Amino acid sequence: MRIAFVSNVVHPFVKGGAQKRIHEIGTRLAADGHDITVYGRQFWDGPGEITHEGLTLRAVAPAAGLYTDDRRSITEAIDFAARLARPLHRRLAADDHDLVVASVFPYFPVLASKLATLGTDTPLVTTWHEVWRDYWESYLGGAAPFGKVIEYVTARLPQQPIAVSGITADRLAGIGPSRESIDVVPNGIDVDRIQSAPLPESHGHDSYDVLFAGRLIEDKNVALLLDAFDAVADQTDATLGIIGDGPEATRLQRQARRLNHADRISFLGFLDEYDRVLGHMRAARVFASPSTREGFGITCAEAMAADCTVIAAEHPESAASEVLSNAGVLVRPEQSQLTEALKQALAGERPVMDPKKRAATYDWDSVATKAEIVYNKAIY
């Protein structure tokens, strides 16, 4: 197959889950003999087209800022989409690619990708990481109807949709394609890399009994975790490490300073080295992520591979229950429930299923094989 991936940001020059997925799937397909091109912004030095780890990276726009006031920039997405459509169409008209795979979100590059396929027989495959629907009201406030309309229009495009989880597929079916037409191909993890990551002590850093890793935003419910941990800390000498940054960081740090056991809570900020995050997971006994909005929940899968007891929130807008199955602990996002789960996990209680065995099902090799099947189906 000759596959064109569309992503305004490209791994490893910009870190993020969607672009990492493209890289991991793309490099494996390239190693199997497929021709893989990624269309994106030029965040790398040198010429606009380079080869990196078997992938052709083709810039259609210069590097640009991705966020405005902690929200993804709409103008950036529109600019990238406008710059993408014509060069991608030229390549498709010349029969350079058998299919186009575009990540959602942002939405405008998906619309541009569909526009580029017009007049050709090239199918469009979309990868849906989340479906926001009513969440637009929290994200954009008064401008929420604009976001909802764009999401709805994108969902209604002729496409072969892929969702990263069953819950995302169900939410997508609520605004667009039939559920039967949506394939589920989960996000993946590098199990070997996780299980061989250097422990924090090897770098002279502390390790923590309980760990959280993720963007510090309201839906992650880190405030709830802080209160639950403080209650548990009355009965144990456990420590809590918070990895990540975001708009809630300052408020959460103020909250932590007011707690009885503030001296056992550490905010590590954003860690540039991915292996440092993995090392902290390996060293932790418990990974707690009471997030109520997860299109997949990659950190939960990573923590299972690191042999943590994973505690996550059971919520209709979170795929954590799907990811964990019975290899983790699910609780309602309430302090009493989370406190009790932390207490039991720190006392040594383990899930019914071996977390490492469950995590192995999300290894990138398995995910790439599933993606290849769907891509082939879209062509033939």
Rank of each mutant, 00 (worst) to 15 (best):
E53W: 01
G54I: 03
T56R: 15
T56N: 02
R58C: 11
V60Y: 08
A61N: 06
A63P: 03
A63V: 01
A63G: 08
Y67R: 09
Y67M: 13
Y67Q: 11
R72N: 05
R72T: 13
S73E: 08
I74P: 02
A77C: 06
A77Q: 06
A77F: 09
A77G: 09
F80V: 13
R83N: 06
R83Q: 15
R83C: 00
A85D: 08
L88D: 08
H89E: 09
H89I: 02
R90Q: 14
R91F: 01
R91K: 14
R91V: 00
L92S: 04
A94Q: 12
A94Y: 10
A94V: 04
D95E: 12
D96Q: 15
D96T: 03
H97Q: 10
L99R: 10
V101S: 14
V101C: 13
V101L: 10
S103K: 00
S103Q: 15
F105R: 11
P106G: 12
P106T: 13
P109I: 09
V110K: 08
V110I: 07
V110Y: 05
L111Q: 10
L111W: 11
A112G: 08
A112V: 04
S113K: 01
K114V: 04
K114E: 08
K114W: 14
L115E: 02
A116D: 11
A116R: 08
L118M: 13
G119V: 05
D121A: 11
D121V: 02
D121P: 00
D121W: 02
L124F: 05
V125E: 01
V125Y: 09
T126V: 11
T126M: 12
T126W: 05
W128I: 01
W128H: 07
W128M: 03
V131H: 00
W132H: 13
R133A: 14
R133F: 03
D134A: 14
Y135L: 15
Y135T: 00
W136K: 05
S138D: 13
L140C: 03
G141A: 07
G141S: 02
G141D: 06
A143W: 10
P145R: 02
P145N: 07
P145S: 06
F146Q: 05
F146I: 15
G147I: 05
K148Y: 01
V149L: 15
I150F: 14
Y152G: 00
Y152K: 04
V153S: 01
V153I: 15
V153E: 00
T154K: 01
R156M: 10
L157R: 03
Q159R: 14
P161V: 04
P161A: 04
I162P: 00
A163L: 13
T168G: 02
T168P: 04
A169D: 10
D170N: 12
D170K: 09
D170I: 04
R171W: 00
R171T: 01
R171Q: 14
L172Y: 08
G174P: 08
G174S: 13
I175E: 06
P177H: 14
P177I: 01
S178R: 13
S181Q: 14
S181E: 14
V184H: 09
V184P: 09
P186Q: 04
P186W: 01
G188Y: 02
G188V: 06
I189R: 09
